[in-house]
Simulated assay, not measured.
Amino acid sequence: MPGLSKTNIPSLKQIYSGKVRDCYAVGDDKLLLVATDRISAFDVILGDPIPGKGKVLTALTNFWFEKLKDVIPNHLTGIAPETVVKPEEIPQVAGRAVVSKRLKPILIECVARGYIIGGGWKDYQATGEVCGIKLPAGLRQAEKLPEPIFTPAAKAELGTHDENISYERVVEMYGEKVASTIRNATLELYKRASEYALTRGIIIADTKFEFGLDENGNVLLMDEVLTPDSSRFWPADDYQIGTSPKSFDKQFIRDWLEAQPWDKRPPAPKVPEDIIEKTADKYREALRRLTGTDIEP
């Protein structure tokens, strides 16, 4: 199964190409969002795609949108992507695209952390805090937090790191109503998803959400939701406090890159075929565990 690195849909106007998604205009008020098989690490898009990755992201996101739709409305329109492109373009969107409402993005990456790991673990070791939130003393790596925490970040330009900010800064940027809505939704989405995932043998250590505003100023959930690209998924039966757990996400390919003589600037090293295959397997395993389904080859 070859990977799709980029799309070419001449019947629609392309308005954006990100780390993973290509975005096209559908009329004035809708978008076609296509999840390619591109993968990024350390804010660098790698040269080799992960076959099937975009279909996994789309299937998982659609699953979570349906499961969590009573928490907050989302950007889906229900329009089949195959109906907004020409017949010869359908193979590029089948199983990997959605037609969404066109929203004004809220430029905040809304992160929910339930366990102390990654950058949060490094911050905690240095300061006893994560993003300005004081945590209990004596926590160990990968330990579950007493309660999930909301750690927002201001979204940066492509190729640069997002900046962690305080909740108070979110209020300054968007007002108390929007700030409290995205904070409360982030924590409730994480709570419900993590409780469900545990029943499927997966710990969701942390995850990030993105939100947008519709024409009436209502907050909607958008982009991708609770995927291996936006979350840390750990196998529950292999979880141990004090170590960096195995994962069903792109941490596997990050670990390989960390072992290479690379300064984390483009271009990234060429990834061996076996690392690509194992990464693809991890994405699909996450989908199978959480949904009981698999992607079409």
Rank of each mutant, 00 (worst) to 15 (best):
R140Y: 01
E88H: 15
L139A: 08
S40V: 11
T77R: 11
R183F: 04
L33P: 12
W64Y: 08
R288V: 10
D249E: 05
N8Q: 14
I276C: 11
K191V: 00
P91K: 12
A25M: 11
S11D: 06
P105E: 06
P228E: 06
I204M: 10
A153N: 02
L226T: 06
P146Q: 08
A193H: 02
I117T: 15
A59V: 02
D294A: 14
P269R: 00
P49G: 10
G114E: 10
G159A: 01
L107Y: 07
R254A: 04
T7M: 12
L135K: 13
D238N: 12
P81F: 09
A286F: 14
T151W: 01
T77Q: 09
I253T: 12
R289I: 04
K177C: 02
G47I: 02
A286Y: 15
T7H: 12
T291K: 08
K134T: 13
A112T: 02
A185P: 03
G114F: 03
I203N: 05
K134E: 12
K69R: 12
G114H: 03
E66A: 15
A259G: 06
F248N: 02
D255W: 01
G78F: 12
P136L: 09
S244F: 03
I116Y: 05
D29I: 04
Y24C: 03
H75R: 06
G175M: 12
R183N: 05
I203K: 04
P148G: 06
S247K: 03
K67N: 01
I241H: 02
R102S: 15
R21V: 05
V170K: 09
N216L: 08
L57K: 05
R183L: 05
E88R: 07
E89Q: 07
D29W: 04
K30P: 05
E215G: 09
V178E: 00
I39D: 01
T151C: 02
V219T: 10
Y196Q: 14
D238G: 03
R289G: 11
E66Y: 09
P228I: 14
A126G: 00
D229H: 09
K246L: 12
F248Y: 15
L257R: 03
K155N: 06
Q14S: 11
G132F: 04
L187S: 03
T291F: 05
D237T: 10
P73D: 15
L33K: 00
V26W: 07
L220W: 14
V44I: 12
A97I: 09
A25P: 04
G95K: 04
E66L: 13
K250Y: 01
P245T: 01
P235E: 00
R284V: 10
S247Y: 06
T243Y: 08
R38P: 12
S11Y: 07
L158E: 13
S244T: 14
T127G: 08
R284P: 00
T36H: 06
P87H: 00
D214V: 04
M222C: 15
G95Y: 09
Q141E: 15
E195A: 15
V26E: 05
T227C: 11
Y16L: 07
D294F: 03
T160Q: 13
A179W: 00
L60N: 04
I133V: 15
D28Q: 12
G242E: 08
A94V: 11
I9T: 10
I79Q: 13
E163N: 14
H161N: 14
K67C: 01
A142H: 02
Q92C: 06
G52V: 03
V171G: 05
Y16R: 04
V93T: 05
